[in-house]
Design a protein around this nucleic acid. Structure first.
Lengths: 217, 217
DNA sequence: TAGATTGTTAATCGATTAACAATC
DNA sequence: TAGATTGTTAATCGATTAACAATC
């Protein structure tokens, strides 16, 4: 029951629309035109209208968009109107940092548990979230209806652990390991490659235009 | 002395080429054709050749590319042949996680110090990296030739801190706060918006094709 | 109703892929 | 030299922007 394929670029932009709409709601703004929103977000109004119309006509001619209605519709599109149960594989600093970040839960991402091979970490809790041994993985995933696993482990273990959680029923991998996971078609991956991000920053810093702009006469 | 503008898409791909070339080196592979590399990386050979030729002719007809030579050239393009001095603003879990990640230093990103407003964190060290109070920021940036600041602080403080470190000479911001920093032209920003990444994963999980593929007769 | 602004089609721009002559 | 494979031009594809008729 899926409509025509939505382009990757559009999906990439959706969370940003969602964020701006949330801010507008906080400011008490009730309606906004694509033009006003385009100025805030520094994109074209045309792009906003095109993007939204991939999913339906959420606006009204002569009026614009109702902020809270659109906010809600985007949350449905993103699937964050429903609860997602998450586990974190790897209870090191990065895993703990994610466990500590309460904003995810406000969006319906419930972190149910953490897992680690290191027995010294097992039993520890972070913000009430317990660290379990890997042996408990299968039972835990099945009992807690876990859909998403965050992999905050070294790349050497990432493929193996990904395959394991998938075999137990996980449908999405949030991959922080610096490796391309090559997984079955019915599993989705979202990569967060911090080292690549840092290299891009290095590129930008290195190739930045240091020249003093001449004032044209 | 800059050649023609390189597209964002190309820059985005460079670190991935770099990673695969590093792996090839480890495997002892000396030369590789765009075609072989394209199979490994699951991109087209055409794209590889086009991407690389933005920066120069690194290959040789009839031979392909010398792996270690190309690896080196890409490291120069990315600017990771030189040392970058980094500070981390925000010594919470995420800041500590980054400080703990030794791989960055192998690529020349030296984490010189962390800063926090919380006096309970000041004085603490993570892997030998000390947490300083914000008051020391100006002196530290100037004395340590700090080019890059990672912002691992709540979004409410991000803009203020970004402007502060920029005024002291920082040229690049690695922004983990969920806000669009609107900064001067001679400063570059690389965003890591984890919550947006997680929402995209939610989208993918939600819109995944659950249908059982029929076997065509 | 008149004005505003969407939804949508058409035009443009840019990025990817294909093709092949150049050349090692 | 013959074969392989690049560098590069041309063709295609997709995404963005512009334009405007539809409509609230």
């Amino acid at each position: 029951m899926e409509q025509k394929e939505i382009s990757r670029a559009v999906i990439k932009r959706l969370p940003r629309y969602y964020r701006y709409l949330g801010e507008l709601m906080k400011e008490g703004v009730e309606r906004i035109s694509s033009n006003e929103l385009s100025e805030r977000m520094k994109v074209t109004a045309s792009q906003i209208r095109q993007d939204l119309n991939n999913f339906g006509g959420f606006g009204q001619q002569g009026y614009g968009y109702n902020v809270s209605y659109l906010y809600n519709e985007i949350s449905k599109i993103l699937g964050i109107d429903k609860q997602h149960n998450i586990i974190i594989i790897g209870a090191g600093n990065l895993g703990q940092a994610i466990a500590n970040y309460t904003n995810f839960e406000r969006r319906g991402f419930m972190i149910k548990g953490m897992f680690d091979i290191n027995p010294r970490l097992v039993g520890m809790t972070v913000r009430g979230i317990e660290v379990y041994p890997i042996e408990k993985l299968e039972q835990f995933i099945k009992e807690n209806d876990v859909q998403i696993a965050a992999l905050t482990i070294p790349k050497s273990k990432a493929k193996e652990m990904a395959e394991k959680v998938i075999s137990y029923g996980v449908k999405g991998i949030w991959n922080f390991a610096h490796i391309d996971l090559d997984l079955p078609e019915d599993v989705v991956v979202e990569n967060v490659h911090l080292s690549e991000s840092l290299m891009r920053l290095s590129y930008k810093v290195t190739h930045m235009d240091h020249s003093i702009k001449e004032i044209p006469r």
